[in-house]
């Protein structure tokens, strides 16, 4: 809870105000077919979510923490993308996340469209101790604004907040500014301790359902 920054804590929608998402939200009903509309067995809505971000910011660890509730510092290098599924309950609806955990290195960036195309949600991850990863987050955000589905739920995820404050190289203000400008929810997480992870996905699910 406490890890959720003020940008998103009031309402997941509020962060969207002023962002280009508002515009696309208007169309989202009619355009919904563009997002993966699939429902699995039992009518549980399937939400395709893509994790994007620079190499070594913790994308795989976030996914593993959410899906398996574990932390493995030495998880393998991601090549291409890894696929995981996990259901989450919001209020009285259950949503099944189909998560594409993409490879972060430049060589693999050109493959990302296959994963974010048709995605209903995207989490752009950066490492709070690594300014270059925040720049990369800007890049991915722009990509998603340009090529993502209409009505895609966007989240900016500041990972590794377990690091001491002195190691923090990207300020909360910078992140809040970007999130507000781009109409993204903002989360602070630590895949290592688990802080903020569950909440991050739950709120994304909520935003998806609300649409």
């Amino acid at each position: 809870m406490g890890n959720c920054s003020s940008t998103s804590s009031s309402s997941s929608r509020s962060a969207n105000v002023g962002g280009s998402l508002v515009v696309s939200n208007v169309n989202s009903e009619s355009e919904r077919g563009e997002r993966s509309p699939a429902t699995g067995a039992g009518g549980v809505p399937r939400v395709k979510l893509v994790l994007l971000g620079d190499t070594s910011v913790g994308k795989s660890c976030i996914a593993l923490r959410f899906v398996r509730k574990t932390f493995d510092e030495s998880s393998k290098v991601t090549v291409g993308a890894a696929f995981m599924a996990q259901t989450v309950k919001v209020d009285d609806t259950t949503v099944k996340f189909e998560i594409w955990d993409t490879a972060g290195q430049e060589r693999y960036a050109s493959l990302a469209p296959l994963y974010y195309r048709g995605a209903s949600a995207a989490a752009v991850v950066y490492d709070v101790s690594e300014p270059s990863s925040f720049e990369k987050a800007r890049y991915w955000t722009r990509e998603l604004q340009k090529h993502g589905s209409n009505g895609i739920v966007l989240a900016l995820v500041a990972n590794k907040v377990d690091l001491p404050e002195s190691a923090r190289a990207v300020t909360r203000e910078e992140a809040e500014k970007l999130a507000a400008e781009e109409g993204m929810m903002l989360f602070e997480t630590s895949a290592k301790t688990g802080d903020g992870i569950q909440e991050c996905f739950e709120r994304i699910a909520k935003a998806y359902v609300a649409q």
């Binding site: 509309p37 090549v79 291409g80 993308a81 493959l111 296959l114 048709g118």
Partner: peptide
Amino acid sequence: TENMRGRVDPQFYAFRWITL
């Protein structure tokens, strides 16, 4: 058509099989 067809693009698995 991929999403509704459930096409399993080789990029989803074979990319890693081959590259590595």
